[in-house]
Design a protein around this nucleic acid. Structure first.
Length: 576
RNA sequence: GGGCGUGUGGCUUAGUCCGGAUAGAGCACCGGGUUCCUAACCCGGCGGCCGGGGGUUCGAAUCCCCCCACGCCCGCCA
């Protein structure tokens, strides 16, 4: 299929119209696989487009793997020769196996930083959108042949982390009453650390607004953290909360190659060097109170935020300054650097760009910006405003429902297997539900949608995979691999399915280029849909002459769908 | 006020970067389908002046301009 564009371009030159190749477009419709609109060239020739189409169709030389070009109205249509498409597609899937859909590479090493939520407590669904996008992007980039490193930037020196240490370093009797009130009457030892240790956080945040003396204590801890003398319990505490949070993410398949602790850049002196470089920068200014700043008005930032403070009068630094140090380190290791950020960080991204420019750094991270997840009452999901749905709660509910669905279908499965399948279904439902929406679109969270196992959902993909597995399981007595005869794969559902299978590598390439991971989610649904149509209309095990060839189609679909699930971070299921 | 983003059937959305044929899908609703490989499925139907207006073009959901609505950001927080 790829060769088609080249073949046409080569011939296009010999045709009277030069810009032919530029008009090529995937139509994917009933008219053909590739369509060439001829309105423009016809106009420049002063001829009716339909005439030109007819003439070109007749004159177009045969191309290997293509049916003869046809003229429909003003369009010149090309269709892949189904026999050959089946042949090359199935063969490629069987040869490449788990790598089908992957590109040959190599591609330059890339760093994907995502999630990086402050270690202050459990994840709500809004925060998890970052990880779902980032983790999926990392998987797709790896499939292009790039060595990928995913990073979680742990802010262990900021005010948020200081708040956690502040409250937990006090003996319980000394806790302010309004904070203590949020603790449950009895400690549940089974509770994970992020939930237990993060529980007081919203109350602390509230309390500090009205209690300056407490805010002062937190400030003191903050300074201690920045100066590299953290309270004894600090690191272990943050580590515990963080590990609880990571366990939560692991439930939906999100994982990290590296945890990057922000404190590291302070202790190595890298932040200090950044401050020095910024002090010597072209637009460096010093505020009356001794704070160091950069005037970024020449970078087109909104004028109200044109002055970016990089160090306070007391010498302590701010998030943006430390982020510069972090990015310099990333640039030293990776030719390509991607940051996944919520839209509330958009201004920060532009500020970071400006600061990098100020110190003469020419490289920039690529930002993948996504919009909020909102709640039905309005506004975005937020722990502090008490408008949050926690990932664990959502997954727990999804598991409960999945279990009921499984039990309604299978009475004989051992409980452990039911539980394992339910976990997998729950994870895919939640992950897919977030993944399917374009990142620049706000997601309005609704329980009934997030818990859907039907239609455009993760479980639908898994169900399709399970159906394919089931057929192959039943056929196994006769053992694969299945030889196929392209001449026996001629029904419309078969052809449509095979065409879809052939598209996966192109989708991977496009997603890697655009970072639009939701497009892969869309492809997965189309593939599963195509397979289900095939499944409903085309007998496989009971077929006679076509049996082996159809089994090959099922095996190829199972493979390609499995690879796609893997790229999406969803687990395949042999039965469900 | 300034900046960024979004607006597509009742609801959720794809397509917008790179303009082309009848704007794809899911949910809901209506009507069908299981002696046959898992009905978490399939088939059919209903439902769209693509926020509004202007412009460019043979052709606009897509490009340009203006307006409206909604969300977020505009800290010596992160």
């Amino acid at each position: 299929m790829r060769a088609l564009a080249d073949a046409l371009a080569a011939r296009g030159v010999s045709l009277p119209v030069e810009q032919v190749a530029l008009q090529l477009d995937w139509s994917g419709g009933e008219h053909g696989d590739l369509a060439l609109p001829l309105h423009r060239p016809a106009k420049s020739l002063g001829r009716p487009p339909a005439d030109l189409a007819t003439e070109l169709a007749a004159a177009f030389p045969p191309v290997a793997g293509l049916l003869p070009a046809t003229a429909v109205g003003a369009f010149l249509n090309f269709t892949a020769e189904p026999r050959r498409l089946a042949e090359t597609t199935l063969r490629s899937i069987f040869e490449r196996g788990p790598a089908y859909g992957h590109l040959d590479g190599p591609a330059p090493p890339v760093c994907v930083e995502h999630t990086s939520a402050n270690p202050t407590g459990p994840f709500h669904v809004g925060r998890v959108r970052n990880g779902i996008i980032g983790d999926t992007l990392a998987r797709v980039l790896a499939a292009t042949g790039a060595p990928v490193t995913s990073q979680y930037y742990v802010d262990d020196v900021g005010r948020q982390a200081a708040m956690i240490t502040w409250i937990w370093s006090k003996p319980l009797p000394e806790w302010p009453q309004e904070i203590r009130a949020v603790l449950p009457a009895e400690d549940d030892p089974r509770e994970r650390a992020d939930r237990r240790l993060g529980r007081p956080y919203p109350a602390v945040s509230q309390y500090l607004k009205t209690h300056p003396e407490a805010a002062g204590e937190v400030q003191a801890i903050s300074r201690a953290l920045e100066s590299g003398r953290p309270p004894a319990s600090h690191h272990a505490l943050v580590d515990k909360v963080l590990n609880g949070m990571l366990a939560s993410l692991a439930r939906i398949g999100i994982r990290f190659d590296e945890l990057v602790w922000e404190s590291r850049f302070l202790t190595t002196g890298e932040v200090e060097r950044v401050v020095a470089r910024l002090g010597a920068a072209p637009h460096a200014v010093t505020e009356p109170n001794g704070a160091r700043a950069i005037d970024t008005s020449s970078y087109g930032l909104p004028k109200d935020s044109a002055r970016v403070i990089v160090a306070r009068g007391d010498g302590t630094t701010l998030y943006a300054t430390r982020d510069v140090a972090y990015h310099l380190e990333k640039f030293s290791r990776f030719p390509r650097v991607i940051d996944v950020l919520g839209q509330d960080h958009h201004l920060h991204a532009r500020t970071l760009d400006a600061l990098l420019a100020e110190i003469g750094e020419s490289r920039r991270p690529e930002f993948v910006i996504y919009q909020d997840i909102t709640v039905p009452e309005g506004g975005r999901m937020s722990t502090r405003h008490g408008k949050a749905v926690y990932l664990d709660d959502l997954l727990d509910e999804a598991e409960t429902r999945a279990r009921a669905e499984i039990l309604a279908r299978h009475e004989d499965l051992p409980p452990e297997e039911v539980a394992a399948i339910a976990r997998t279904i729950a994870a895919s439902a939640v992950r897919y539900h977030i993944l399917r929406v374009a990142p620049d679109k706000t997601v309005a969270f609704r329980w009934e949608d997030a818990l859907s196992f039907e239609g455009r959902s993760g479980p639908f993909l898994q169900y399709s995979y399970a159906r394919a597995s089931s057929i192959l399981r039943k056929a196994e007595a006769e053992a694969g691999p299945w030889p196929f005869d392209p001449d026996r794969l001629t029904t419309p559902p078969e052809r449509a399915l095979i065409k879809r299978l052939s598209l996966l590598p192109g989708v991977v390439a496009r997603v890697a280029r655009t970072t639009h991971v939701h497009a892969l989610a869309g492809f997965a649904h189309q593939l599963a849909e195509e397979f289900n149509r095939f499944y409903e209309t085309t007998p496989v095990l009971k077929a006679e002459a076509e049996r082996a060839s159809r089994l090959a189609v099922v095996a190829a679909t199972r493979r390609a769908l499995g690879n796609t699930l893997d790229l999406l971070g969803l687990a395949p299921l042999e039965r469900m």
